[in-house]
C-alpha cells in the first residue's frame, strides 16, 4: 500500500471536484490531503466522506496568492518530511504549472494529465491521451520518489461508494523562500463561469456563428443549462472569440458530460480536443459534416433557428 498525498486548491468553501475524483479512485490507500490555506468545514466534510486520512492546512508568509516559486518551495519543504510515494493534483492551471517544478526538486518523474489510473500494490499505472487525444498510451514512472501525477478534471468521475476516512486536521507552517517572479495582481477574465477544462456542460460555436455578437445566443443557452461557452479554432481565428475559449489541439482539451457543437464542421484538431465528451450534440446545416460522425445526437439545420428553440425547450424542461 502506497502513502499518497493529494494537493488541492480551495474553491470558496469547497475543494476542487477533481480532488474528490482522485480521492475516490484511491479508496483503500492511505491518502492525505494538503492545501495552502485553511480547510473550511464543508471541504473537510467532503474530504472525510471520500476517504482522506489526514488533511494538512499549510500557512506561511507570501502565500496568499499562487506564485510558482513560493508554492514549490513551500510544498517541497512540506513533502520532504512526509516520505510519500506519490503526490497527486488536478490538472488545473495551477496543478499543471506547479507539479513539474516540485517533481524536479525531488529529481523525480511526473505523469501529466492522466485520464485514468490503477495502483497495483504501490505501483502506479496511468492512461493518458497524447496528440490532443488522437491516441492514448499507458504511462509508468521510475526514478526517485515521490512520483508526481496530475489528473484531468471530469475524467475519473466520482466514486459512488467511497470508503470514508478520519480527515484528521493538521496545521503546518511552510516557507515560501526567496522569489524572483513576484505576483503583482490578478486581472479578472471575461467569464466567471467554470473553466472549459472543468465544465460539466459546454456549448461551442464555430465559423458558422458568422460574428462575435452572435455568441450571445450561445450565452443564453449556456445560462439556462449551466454551461461554459467554447469556440472552434475557425471561430477564434476569425476573431469571433478569444483564444481562452478555444477547444481543440491548439486550444483546450475538454471532457464534459455534455458538449453541444453549434456550426462546427469538426476538423480533426477540434475533434481531438472534445471527443472524450460523454454525450455530444451537433447542430450543422451540412448533413455530411465530420462532427456528425462523433455526435450522439445530430441535428441537421440552421443553428440560428435551432439554438433559440433549444434554449426555450431546456427552460420548459428545467422549469426556468
Amino acid at each position: 500500500m502506497a502513502k499518497i498525498l493529494v494537493f488541492t486548491e480551495l474553491h470558496g468553501t469547497h475543494v476542487k471536484g477533481v480532488t474528490l475524483e482522485i480521492l475516490g479512485k484511491l479508496s483503500g490507500h492511505t491518502v492525505e490531503i494538503a492545501t495552502i490555506g485553511k480547510f473550511p468545514t464543508e471541504a473537510a466534510t467532503e474530504l472525510a466522506k471520500f476517504g482522506a486520512a489526514k488533511i494538512h492546512s499549510l500557512a506561511g508568509a507570501n502565500l496568499d496568492k499562487y506564485s510558482p516559486e513560493g508554492y514549490s518551495n513551500a510544498l517541497h519543504g512540506f513533502i520532504s518530511k512526509g516520505a510519500y510515494d506519490y503526490v497527486f493534483a488536478g490538472a488545473t492551471s495551477l496543478g499543471k504549472d506547479l507539479l513539474p517544478r516540485l517533481a524536479t526538486k525531488f529529481d523525480a518523474g511526473m505523469a501529466s494529465e492522466v485520464t485514468n489510473f490503477t495502483m497495483e500494490g504501490d505501483k502506479f499505472f496511468g492512461t493518458r491521451p497524447l496528440f490532443a487525444g488522437k491516441c492514448f498510451a499507458k504511462v509508468e514512472l521510475s526514478g526517485p520518489k515521490p512520483h508526481f501525477v496530475t489528473v484531468r478534471p471530469n475524467a475519473l468521475g466520482l466514486n459512488p461508494n467511497p470508503t470514508s476516512g478520519a480527515a484528521a486536521a493538521s496545521d503546518s507552517t511552510v516557507d515560501a523562500g526567496a522569489m524572483k517572479a513576484i505576483i503583482q495582481e490578478i486581472l479578472k477574465g471575461a467569464s466567471e463561469k467554470l473553466d472549459l477544462t472543468e465544465a460539466n456542460i459546454i456549448v461551442s460555436g464555430g465559423r458558422a456563428m458568422k460574428e462575435a455578437a452572435n455568441f450571445k445566443i450561445l450565452d443564453e443557452l449556456a445560462n439556462v443549462i449551466g454551461a461554459t461557452v467554447g469556440a472552434s479554432r475557425a471561430a477564434v481565428d476569425s476573431g469571433f472569440a478569444p483564444h481562452a475559449m478555444q477547444v481543440g489541439q491548439t486550444g483546450k482539451t475538454v471532457a464534459p458530460t455534455l458538449y453541444i457543437a453549434c456550426g462546427i464542421s469538426g476538423a480533426i484538431q477540434h475533434l481531438a480536443g472534445m471527443r472524450t465528451s460523454k454525450v455530444i450534440v451537433a447542430i450543422n446545416t451540412d448533413p455530411d459534416a465530420p462532427i456528425f460522425t462523433k455526435a450522439d445526437y445530430g441535428i441537421v439545420g440552421d443553428l440560428f433557428q435551432i439554438v433559440p428553440l433549444l434554449t426555450q425547450e431546456f427552460k420548459n424542461l428545467l422549469g426556468k
Binding site: K138, T276, I299
Partner: peptide, 28 residues
C-alpha cells in the same frame, strides 16, 4: 528517463448516433 510509455492505441470509436433532419421549419 522518468516516464515510460507503452500500449499506444487509438481511442475507442463511438457507435454512430442518431441524426435528425431539422431543415424544414415545420419539423424543427
Amino acid at each position: 528517463r522518468r516516464v515510460k510509455y507503452s500500449h499506444f492505441q487509438l481511442p475507442p470509436e463511438k457507435p454512430s448516433g442518431k441524426k435528425f433532419d431539422a431543415t424544414d421549419s415545420a419539423k424543427m
